[in-house]
Design a protein around this nucleic acid. Sequence first.
DNA 1: ATAGGGTTAG
Length: 642
Amino acid sequence: MPPPSITKLKRTSVSQPRLLNPTFSSSSPLHTQFPYHSSTLSQNHNPEPPGTLSPSIILSRKPSNGSHSSYYAHLLESCISRKAINPGKQLHAHLCQMGLGFNSYLATKLVNLYSVCRSLRDAHLLFDKIPKGNLFLWNVLIRGYAWNGPYEVAISLFHQMLGYGLMPDRYTFPFVLKACSALSAIEEGRKIHERVIQTRCETDVYVGAALIDMYAKCGCPGSARQVFDKIEVRDAVLWNSMLAAYSQNGHPDESLTLCGEMALTDLRPTEATFVTVISASADMAALPPGKELHGFSLRLGFESNDRVKTALVDMYAKTGSVKVARTLFEQLGEKRVVSWNAMITGYAMHGHASEALNLFEEMKRETLPDHITFVGVLGACSHGGLLNEGQTFFELMVREYHIDPTVQHYTCMIDLLGHCGRFGEAYSLIMQMKVMPDSGVWGALLNSCKMHGEIDLGELALEKLIELEPEDSGNYVILSNMYAKAGKWEGVARLRKLMIDKGIKKSIACSWIEVKNKIHAFLSGDTSHPNSDAIYAELKRLGGLMTEAGYVPGTGSVFHDVEEDEKANMVCCHSERLAIAFGLISTQPGTRLLITKNLRVCEDCHIAIKFISKITEREVTVRDVNRYHHFKDGICSCGDYW
DNA sequence: ATAGGGTTAG
């Protein structure tokens, strides 16, 4: 039996309610009031997923004894839960014919349907025709804009709603706060928080989680914590939002501490708990808590959870256990973009360029790479000094994948060109960027200038960097070292005065290592550690062995007023080397050493560490906690002239 | 009478 066409349905005798006619966007090829003729149905190239009610089935079940609001409500609910826009529009047209269009209960459901189907234009046009006394109607439309944008409209609707004398409820707040989060609109967010308190909604966990998220996205974890502390009956999601608030704002340690408190409650951690807190431990380059969380997640039955597993891949890769990361990566049931990206960037940040690029080739066959994939791929090229490959991938990204380069992609390219001494091309690339060059870009250029002694361009880069981040000492230090290397002491003096005038203090390089659950931190030339004597003795011993093995202390930093033998001494007391020496004398042979550094490891130390690994047959990983594409901190504290 | 918050790769 052929499906009944909507045009054949009986028209009611009631005068046509124009009020709620469905609207069709101008992009739709269908401009008639009844768009779904049987001919158009058969041309449907986008069939609904299996299990969806087809439009013909909906209408063939039309009750013969007249129309009941609850019957259509049921059908509309069915469309809403399936996000089935086309049958919904057909129902809408049908309701207009039936004369049920002015039923504001059903109309509200239609607004809801358009809203969940992201047809905000249709939702809003219909909304405009419905009496405004119904809070639910407002909530539905605000939700639509909070989920899909423009977010400003959600906030403006909220104010219009207040203008109508309606009181927002515990459903309204999460929606409008989500819009504030998306816009980082802190002033608006705080005003809404006041209203939450007036309305006595502050103990609702949904409202609370939305407030915490709003404060987190606006960079105010302290305010988020105040909200969290005021709520007495908490659920897992509330904890999760607070954990995320800390890790999104550079406090992974607080996130881990809070996770410990959560573990003391009766609440069962969820997938989001583990994803958040495992990534927090990756951010602080802390393997032991990460491993503990791994075990904890296994005990709670998250072994085959791919999202948790992806977070673990990222954590193990970042903390230097690239092989463990790869093993887990291979265990993934479904490899999504995030998983590929975590593994590729993991290889890139440890300088495993060929592994990163091989994996990228494999990925291309299975998944569509995104802009973050290319940050990893270009980062791998930049680490490996692969200029030609980098340029090819950059082209590929733009031409084949139609991805607009971001500052991060440009930073990698500037670094690549600069390190190869192609300053003309590097500079013209900066000039032709469609995005504003940030401190990462100029920092990459400055760092390259330092390597090649390009003083003029270096001065220009510093000028830009001073505009962008006047408080950052690292930039001055790099240029100062360049002046010193070229013997331009008046430049050194000028910069020193500039820093004093601006009241800028130099940041100090610090490295740390965890041994037996205790963190041991070292500054450059530090002698305050209880085992200091033994550490320096070990460094001296290593120095001898390294020289025998062919190591030549770095010529990267030149000391103008220090005797030759003292130079060698100073090169040996960079903070990462102190941490390594301590690790060597206080752990079992064969244990892997993970050192974390707050500034970028200098090239000389990188070479030295390779020698140390070889001589001692120990796996040594030094990880800087700065993002690897931030080249502005490419300094070692001993090489400075202050 | 219908609805809602948190999550990873740079």
